[in-house]
Design a protein around this nucleic acid. Structure first.
Lengths: 342, 342
DNA sequence: GCAATAACTGGTAGCGCTACCATGACGTAG
DNA sequence: CTACGTCATGGTAGCGCTACCAGTTATTGC
């Protein structure tokens, strides 16, 4: 009698089937797949052809269970639709697509508690590495990261105290550079407009404030913010509010490009001359800022590259060679364009 | 002697630990967690407190292995940064976040081969459901989907021949409605501008063509497309090309809103009056289209809702009650705005 | 009051894979 | 020619969990 197909497994070939077909032990098949160098040329070829013939694909669940290590990268981002994080995620996917690693993506919705919950869920999966956005984890989350037993990369920001590794840039410096540029260009009543105001936005605001204070131009009424999620529509609303509050406004540093675009459109609609009457600076430098009319000055950030670098660092750490410097600052670049060319 | 901590497991509590602490059998703990109704009130409480005390979280890998069924939704989309798919994915995540299901996201990069590869990788994981974008799978992919042994939902489009279930809308009708609107508004030399030209774009183009032919206005030179990925910048370039080719152009239906935005900005830059000289229609109706100046007519699509509905249908199918109609058309809505208000 | 049924609970045997150790066949050095 | 390493291979014993079946105790019907 032939093996009566276990009631459970849906009939997929297992490592035992491959081993039988190739006339070797199961463990040798396992090795041939994971460490080809440790199996003789001969057997390797035999095994390879058996694998192809049967269409064998290893079961990642069984693998993870047996080796107490899943080939999974856990990735936590605060938003899936925010273009900025989407690009980071894309960088991560692109860097991981040709290796054995899968990606477990979690959406924290900008909530520390949700981040904690997700970390708790990721833990038992024994991920090979964790990539998390930001540096403002709750103490509980931080502990979970520290005891995760795998490389951890915090992305999008830099800070003095990495859990393990970091790739990003200084939002404070970015905000400062934006404000300084407006000041240099001759603007004086420069507003800050920001939505969502997550920790990264707060630091951009702090950078703006530092620059404004240094120039003796700071005025609390120039700042217009809201915790509401950012959008182009909201950019328009906030700009209207700001203008109502301070009619003498002659420049705005927008917390991100969506806001900046809303401001730009409102200027068109209200026939406010840009850059003559109002100067506009955005943040992140989305593709469209260069194409806009007038083109919009923005702080270019390297989101995709951050994703790629995070993976590279994690991969290196898995291999046992952690980079000598645990914090990588990819910087930013202020792109000067028409919207501030006075 | 105390249990000498297995060399492998990293010291996390297992179901056996919980069972011991609660003074019950392991299988009862398993049941209490999965089907609380089948365990007596008493034991359930005991088990619950043991779980909390130990901080026990079940190992999803072991679960998947033992039950031959992972609590994973496989999701395949062609792009991670395209706002449209990002919204679908967000709908999926939001609908799944409070259940036990994880999400395995795959990026096909608009490639049928890559889709096949990813499906092959997903298979051995035995996902609880699969959600894939589009209806143009390769024969091999289709077979993989049919034999996946789990509910399958094709999203973003509707068609006559679902693998299992479908949620989306007709891109052909969307394109047709857009073109008809321009014709009605009095435009005559209406161009089609499209990038990437994936199957969905092709169908929008076909809809445009049908409307134009019906009105006796079709002219092949009015169509400007490229396989290059879409962007606002590209919208500008293509519009310039289109105008060079057909100087009498008086309207454009853009394959998506990014392109439309590029066109709008170029009109500003070249001082072409919108909607007077040129009418513009976009596709998808991103948030910013309403805020733009002039606001841009666009075909509103319900991406987020598609994601949610796909999950709802898959979940229902898992429970055993497939919806009576396997294809759900969520439709679209043409949002008439200033850019075509002649 | 007794069999029949339902409602709980637990033991056993894997799921498919890999860590660990054992084995045997070769060199290679002394 | 023995002792000892090195290399290639395989056997065994789990990883943590759940399907399946077998008990055990209430509960019900007649």
């Amino acid at each position: 009698m032939i093996k009566p197909r276990s009631r459970r497994g849906g009939g997929r070939p297992t490592i035992a089937d491959v081993a039988r077909k190739a006339g070797v032990g199961a463990i040798t098949v396992s090795r041939a797949l994971r460490e080809p160098g440790r199996v003789s040329e001969d057997l390797r070829r035999q095994i390879e052809s058996a694998v192809n013939e049967l269409g064998y694909v290893p079961d990642p669940n069984a693998r993870a269970l047996a080796s107490a290590r899943a080939e999974v990268f856990g990735v936590l981002v605060p938003s899936l639709t925010n273009n900025v994080f989407a690009e980071v995620v894309r960088g991560i996917y692109d860097s991981l697509s040709d290796g054995p690693f899968r990606i477990q993506l979690g959406n924290t919705h900008y909530s520390g508690l949700e981040e904690e919950r997700l970390l708790q869920v990721f833990g038992p999966q024994r991920p090979a590495a964790l990539i998390v956005a930001g540096i403002d984890q709750t103490p509980a989350s931080r502990k979970l990261l520290e005891t995760a037993g795998c490389p951890v990369v915090q992305v999008m920001e830099t800070g003095p105290d990495p859990v393990d590794m970091m790739v990003g840039f200084s939002h404070f410096e970015g905000g400062k550079a934006a404000a300084e540029h407006l000041i240099e260009a001759g603007y004086r009543r420069i507003g800050f407009i920001g939505a969502r105001m997550d920790p990264r936005s707060q630091r951009r605001l702090a950078g703006y404030r530092a620059a404004m204070e240094a120039a003796g131009l700071f005025d609390a009424r120039l700042t217009t913010t809201t915790p509401v999620p950012s959008s182009v529509t909201l950019g328009r609303e906030l700009f209207r509010d700001a203008l109502a509050k301070v009619p003498s406004l002659d420049g705005v540093f927008c917390n991100n490009d969506d806001i900046a675009l809303g401001v730009l459109f409102e200027c068109h609609r209200a026939s406010i001359a840009v850059p003559k009457t109002i100067g506009i600076v955005g943040f992140n430098d989305l593709d469209m800022m260069e194409v806009a009319f007038p083109s919009v000055t923005s702080v270019r950030t390297y989101r995709y590259e951050i994703g790629r670098r995070a993976v590279a660092m994690a991969l290196a750490a898995i291999e046992g060679n952690r980079p000598e410097s645990r914090v990588v600052d990819l910087g930013f670049e202020l792109k000067r364009r028409e919207s501030t060319a006075r």
